[in-house]
Simulated assay, not measured.
Amino acid sequence: MEYVTTAGVDVPALGFGTARMDSHEERRRAVSAALDAGYRHVDTAQIYGSEPAVGEAVRDSAVDRADLFLTTKLAGDNRAYDDAVASTRASLDRLDTDYVDLLLIHSPNDDVPHAETLRAMNDLREDGLVRHVGVSNFSVEQLREAMDASEAPILTNQVEYHVRERRDDLLGLCVEEGVMLTAYSPLDVGGLADDGDLAEIGDRYGKTASQVALRWLVQQPMVSAVPMSSDPEHVRSNVDVFDFELTAEEMRRLFERGGPIDAIRSTLGL
């Protein structure tokens, strides 16, 4: 496993996502398979309905809680101060844990100022119920606002990001400010499995198109990814991306699918 170092913490560069699963048992089995495969970062959210399954899988695993990085996210209607505090405590109960490593605002909500929600999150951090805070689905401007409003560092902004979805401005800000960019839907909800460019590169390394897509992400500065799958074979395959490295030419080729990279080239070291 490789890590992204941000705000003084080493976060596993690859986590396991738990969205879009149909049942408690499917979620529990998937998280158990992920822990067995070596994932040590699990990503959930209040709106996913997966917190109880994550908690059960972690409790039943041989992995120590201290060795895991658990992330959850506040639902949109839990953004007011009291709601953020109460719902986080409820999340901890569902996860069967005393704390989460990372609590995110799941998405911007114009009805409640970011500063109010972040004040609650920072107070939860002071109480030891949350170790780090962050945001999800925030634009560049919204991320700047959150950074200004939070006493604690904003650890990450979790957004959709993959080879078909460039995030140049956001990535540039994250690298500049030392904020991790966490890529959800890093495989375009399965849409990259048959991608010709990725498959061609993968043939050189004995890797699948999906593995190349994940490697492209985690090889970028300040980027982590949280793929998800309920198929144990895919779960194991997705984490097997740390025994090869894409060349600078291959990284450029995949970036350039989305257009010129002159503005982002120095950020990427290309």
Rank of each mutant, 00 (worst) to 15 (best):
R166H: 11
S150T: 11
D148V: 12
E177Q: 15
S107L: 12
V133D: 02
E141D: 13
E126C: 08
P153Q: 11
L143A: 04
H106N: 01
R167N: 08
E151Q: 10
C174K: 08
S136N: 10
F138T: 00
N109Q: 14
P153Y: 07
L143C: 02
A149G: 06
E160P: 03
E145S: 14
F138C: 00
Q142M: 13
L155R: 00
P153L: 10
V135G: 05
T156G: 11
E141Q: 13
L118N: 11
E126M: 12
L143F: 02
N137R: 14
R119I: 08
N137F: 11
M121H: 15
L124T: 03
H114S: 14
L143K: 02
E141H: 13
S139F: 11
L124Q: 03
M147V: 15
L124N: 05
V112I: 12
D110P: 06
L118A: 11
R119V: 05
I154K: 07
V159K: 00
S150L: 05
T117G: 09
P108W: 11
Y161D: 07
V133M: 08
D127N: 10
Q142S: 05
G178A: 09
G128T: 12
V163Q: 03
E116N: 09
D123I: 03
S139K: 05
L171E: 11
N157L: 09
L102P: 00
N122D: 15
Q158D: 14
S139A: 15
S107H: 08
A149P: 09
R119Q: 14
G172W: 10
E116S: 05
M147N: 06
P108M: 05
V100T: 08
F138G: 00
V159S: 03
G134L: 02
A152K: 06
E165R: 15
V135W: 01
E160A: 15
G134H: 04
I154H: 06
T156M: 15
L124K: 02
V133I: 15
V175H: 04
V130R: 00
R167M: 04
V163L: 14
G134Q: 01
L143H: 13
N137W: 08
V179Y: 01
S150K: 01
